[in-house]
Amino acid sequence: MELFDTSKSILQEIRLDPGKFRNVRLLVKRDDLIHPEVSGNKWRKLKYNIELAEYQKKDGILTFGGAYSNHLLAVAAACVSAGLKSIGVVRGEELNSESNENLKRCSELGMELKFVSRESYDERNEKSCQEGWKEAHPHFLLVPEGGANYYGMVGCQEIWKELSEKVDHVFVAQGTTTTSCGLLIGSAENTVLHVVPALKGFDSEAEMRKQLFPFLIDEETIDDYMRRVEVHPEAHFGGYGKWTPDLLDFISSCKNAYDLPLDKIYTGKAFHALMEWLKQQDFNIPQTILFIHTGGLKNGGV
């Protein structure tokens, strides 16, 4: 299926000043280029969920998201391409399909939008709530918000198959931890994974351990993997969905200097954390740093 073709995800090299950044080679995996509406980690996390829905002969996918959710848009677009239907449960009963361009586009793509109260939405992961949606829509595969499940992790793990480079450090923005967990499992044992949470006060380690358990099962193995994780918890610029003029200036400078578009919700903050970290390093031997561009430009672009 053309939807799951990764050939457009190039590896872009960022030319840094060698006088300021000694022994550093910086590469960007441009997953944002995969598809205009199913870009970045959304594509990765949906691939095997789509295949599972097809294998189980489901009519489509039912999933969850906010009013400006890139995930909802990605599911709507991916399902159309796969010949599947889609249902989006949206946070905010006061909304409708005309409330913003994102919801309007989801509706245009054929997604059936169901608007629920914030209280009901907060219970979306409760067992009783999940069973209720499954009972109401038995012919739809239930996919968590953001594609945060086992199949999402497997899809993200495949990024490494497309890389021939030896990577010493990899940076990635973190939301549900699905992408970062997939990257961690697929990485070489000497690679350090740097995660940059978009949420203020987010317990990255606890959430990653929860996601990793179905993969690794025993705590000792999880401990071994987690020793290679470095969290950058103070790079959120005020919290999820918040930003500052300094961040917007940084994003603009990256576009001008490196021809690298970033969004203000996830990738802009993560790339800023990477550059700040690099300023503090003085490598004695050459290091290859990889930044995973997880998309998000559709609703978070500057």
Rank of each mutant, 00 (worst) to 15 (best):
D5S: 12
K8S: 13
Q12V: 03
R22Y: 14
N23G: 11
L26D: 10
L26W: 10
L27G: 03
R30M: 04
D31N: 05
E37P: 00
S39R: 01
S39P: 11
G40H: 05
L46E: 01
L46D: 02
N49P: 08
A53L: 04
E54V: 15
Q56P: 03
F64C: 06
V75A: 03
A78C: 09
A82Q: 13
S86W: 00
R91P: 14
N96L: 09
K104N: 11
R105S: 05
R105V: 06
L109K: 10
E112D: 12
E112K: 12
K114Q: 14
F115T: 02
E119I: 15
D122E: 15
D122R: 15
R124M: 07
N125V: 11
C129Y: 14
G132H: 05
H137I: 08
F140R: 01
A148Y: 04
A148Q: 03
G152F: 00
M153L: 13
C156M: 02
Q157F: 07
E158P: 02
I159S: 00
K161F: 02
E162F: 04
V172P: 09
Q174E: 15
G175S: 08
T177C: 15
T178C: 13
L184T: 08
I185L: 13
E189R: 10
V192I: 14
D203M: 06
A206M: 13
A206V: 06
F213H: 13
F215I: 02
L216M: 10
I222W: 06
R228P: 03
V229K: 09
V229M: 07
H232F: 11
G238V: 01
K242P: 00
T244M: 09
P245Q: 12
P245E: 14
D249P: 03
Y258P: 08
K269D: 06
F271G: 13
F271I: 12
A273E: 12
M275C: 13
N284R: 14
G295E: 07
G296C: 08
N299L: 08
G301K: 11
